[in-house]
Simulated scan of single mutants.
Amino acid sequence: MYIAVIADNIADRKQLERLLSRANDAISDETGTLYIDSFGDEKSFLSTAMRYEIFFVDIVSGEEQARNIIDILKNAGVPGRIVVCRPEGTPFSYADTIDGLLSIDKPILTAPLHQLLKNVHADYLKEVNAVKKVEIRSKTDTHYIPVNEILYAIEEEHMVNVHLENGDIIPMLGDLSGFARSVSTSNEFIEARNDIIVNSNHIISRTKKEIVLTNKETLRLKRFSLF
């Protein structure tokens, strides 16, 4: 699970990093590994905002600045849940106007933080698994693609291009191993080459040298191996 910490006070930022690092040691068997990035303001994370499942917004310079960051995230269409860190008992008036906005009291305690992380991860799994879909994140958007619509993924020039049966190609952030993890629970996918993963349900013929897909595309092969 990818987490972004946006805090304008360096001491608060470092403290939340430590708490999340400890959470990774304690609950990663339930949430998966926690990957934590921290930022001092919104300008430094916008280029990679689509990758995060959770945004912790801890702004001490005023509610208006926190609201601005939340607006930026919402307008960008980020898929991650937004969590506002606030002094205990202090209302955040913007909360009622943002659907799904979460909050956690400061000082942040271990038990509430761990429970929040578990809840967000559980909600994420429900969303992805409601229909058998794969989450594919590009630089500008997050796509939830039904497994049966994916033909194959190929790693090209430091990007993974995911080819769909309708002809669309989605450039996915990360490498082919990241795509492999995304589809690891789906038995349909096989490694055709060290740079290609194919949906076996779309293979209509195959030899040692090539496979032909349902869209009539031919892929040259070196080897086949099941995940």
Rank of each mutant, 00 (worst) to 15 (best):
D41C: 13
T110V: 07
P146C: 11
N148H: 12
V198Q: 07
I136W: 02
K74W: 06
I59R: 07
Q115G: 02
I150V: 13
S93T: 12
E217A: 15
H163I: 09
K133H: 12
G100V: 08
R206N: 03
S200N: 06
S138E: 09
T140V: 05
I136F: 05
E156D: 03
V60N: 08
I170L: 12
N215F: 00
I82F: 07
E30Q: 12
V134P: 00
N166A: 05
E30W: 07
D141C: 04
R81W: 06
G77Y: 11
I196E: 00
H202W: 02
L34V: 00
C85I: 14
E135V: 13
L219P: 01
V60T: 12
S225W: 09
D41T: 12
D168H: 08
D29Q: 14
N148A: 07
I204W: 02
K126L: 14
N75C: 04
S103D: 10
Q115T: 11
K216G: 01
I211H: 02
K139R: 15
S93Q: 10
T110P: 01
N201Y: 08
V198L: 12
R67S: 14
S93H: 11
G100D: 01
F56Y: 09
M1A: 13
L213F: 10
E217R: 12
P146K: 13
T31N: 10
E30K: 15
A192G: 12
I27G: 04
V147K: 13
E64G: 01
S61R: 08
F39I: 10
S38L: 01
Y152S: 07
N199G: 08
T218R: 07
H202F: 04
N194Y: 07
P146V: 08
E63S: 09
V160A: 07
K132F: 02
A130D: 11
V134D: 01
K74I: 15
L113H: 11
I154V: 10
Y52K: 04
I10M: 08
V162N: 01
I69P: 07
T97S: 08
L176T: 06
R13A: 06
R193S: 15
K222A: 08
N201V: 02
K132S: 10
L101M: 05
G167L: 05
T214A: 14
D168L: 09
L16R: 02
T110I: 01
D37P: 00
G174P: 12
E135S: 06
S225E: 10
I82N: 03
D123P: 01
L164F: 12
D105F: 01
K133A: 14
A153E: 05
R206D: 00
N194G: 01
S93Y: 13
I98F: 13
N199M: 08
K139M: 14
N215G: 03
I36E: 00
P112Q: 05
F56P: 03
A95N: 02
I196L: 04
N199L: 10
R181E: 11
R13D: 07
K126S: 14
D12P: 01
L109M: 10
I3F: 08
Y2L: 05
K216Y: 06
L16A: 02
N166C: 09
S47C: 02
V83R: 09
R220N: 09
V57C: 13
D41P: 06
D37F: 10
L213R: 10
D37H: 14
L117G: 11
T33W: 02
P112I: 13
